[in-house]
Write a protein that binds this DNA or RNA. Structure first.
Length: 198
DNA sequence: TCACTGATCGTCT
DNA sequence: GACGATCAGTGAG
């Protein structure tokens, strides 16, 4: 399977559909030292009118990028040490997106370890904070178009996609019952406890 | 394989 | 001034 960038028109609306669509797709990060590439194996959707979504209370300085046209990168900083990488998932002005929670590293593992240290491949990008650290994602990448040539973009699958599972989202307190987390079943690079992988 | 804890800081109330 | 879409470390079972 040959790698090419995803076109914006290919991205389904709304964000819940996009979250499922992105499982098995690739994420490519270009840095001066080379290229990092991984399969997206776990995502979560954050919808408009969803109390857990940063867009819920309207536009603020922090979340304004989340209101961009789908396919742009929304990055935020949390818990004092972690960056989270999201893909905007709605029409411009609406506000909603997809959190990228885990990656199966395929290329550039040595570059990821420069950031993550000497950890097993399984732990390089298992979890949203680790994913961002491995790919050297921070606020500088906010607003980047993931459907255009640049430092970070979304690509077509390089391998077939397995069965997709679904569960409640991890680590949130508001609207916690919604089953908006998607993941590739039986994939060792997915985060979360066993109970969430049924 | 859980459960719990501290670290750490930008953003919004 | 409180809180959060997390992680690494520790300790118990």
């Amino acid at each position: 399977m040959r790698l090419r960038r995803l076109r914006r028109a290919e991205l389904p609306v709304p964000s819940a559909a996009l979250a499922r669509f992105l499982i098995g797709k690739t994420l490519v990060r270009i840095v001066p030292g080379g290229r990092m590439l991984g399969r997206i194996v776990e995502t979560e959707a954050y919808l408009p009118h969803d109390a857990a979504c940063h867009a819920f209370r309207g536009i603020t300085r922090r979340n304004r990028v989340l209101f961009m046209e789908r396919g742009h990168a929304y990055v935020y900083f949390i818990y004092g040490n972690h960056f989270m990488l999201n893909v905007c998932g709605e029409k411009a002005g609406v506000g909603g997106g997809v959190l990228l929670r885990a990656l199966e590293p395929l290329q550039g593992l040595d570059l990821m370890r420069k950031r993550r240290g000497r950890v097993p491949a399984r732990d390089l990008a298992r979890g949203p904070g680790r994913l961002a650290q491995a790919l050297n994602v921070d606020m500088r990448l906010e607003g980047v178009d993931l459907c255009a040539a640049g430092p970070l973009w979304l690509g077509t699958p390089l391998e077939p996609v397995g069965r997709i599972g679904r569960s409640v989202r991890i680590g949130i307190s508001k609207d916690a019952h919604r089953r908006l987390r998607f993941y590739e079943r039986d994939n060792a690079y997915v985060s979360g406890s066993r109970a969430l992988c049924k």
